[in-house]
Amino acid sequence: MKKNDRFIKTYTQGTLNQTEIWVDRETGVNYVYHSAGYSGGLTPLLDKSGNVIVTTIEL
């Protein structure tokens, strides 16, 4: 696996105000990234119970 292949973008929406979902291929943890203009933030994606969403990844 290349150094930049650890994360996979699975969802994207918007252009100037952009929301993306990324999955860590090593842990399966889902992250949501949101950017607006020159700022942005990344956080683990949680379900309605507050648990981290983990996707099973087959390599």
Rank of each mutant, 00 (worst) to 15 (best):
L46W: 03
V54F: 02
L46F: 06
K2M: 01
T19C: 09
Y11G: 10
Y31P: 03
N30Y: 05
Y38W: 06
D5V: 06
K9E: 15
Y11S: 14
N4R: 08
I21A: 05
P44S: 12
G28D: 00
K2E: 03
S49A: 12
I21L: 15
L42Y: 07
V29H: 01
I57S: 02
F7M: 15
W22H: 14
G41T: 14
I8A: 11
T27M: 03
H34S: 09
L16Q: 10
L59A: 04
G50V: 02
Q13M: 13
K48G: 05
V32L: 08
T12P: 04
T43C: 09
Y11A: 14
G41E: 10
K3T: 07
W22E: 08
K2F: 06
G50T: 03
R6G: 00
Y31L: 11
T27K: 08
T10P: 01
L46C: 04
E58A: 03
L45V: 00
T12R: 13
V29L: 04
T43A: 15
Y33W: 10
D5F: 07
L42F: 06
D24L: 04
G28L: 00
T27Y: 05
G50C: 01
E58M: 02
T15S: 11
S39G: 08
A36N: 11
V29G: 01
T43M: 14
R6H: 00
T12Q: 13
D24H: 03
S35Q: 10
G14K: 01
I21S: 05
I57N: 04
T19R: 15
V52A: 11
T19Q: 11
V29E: 08
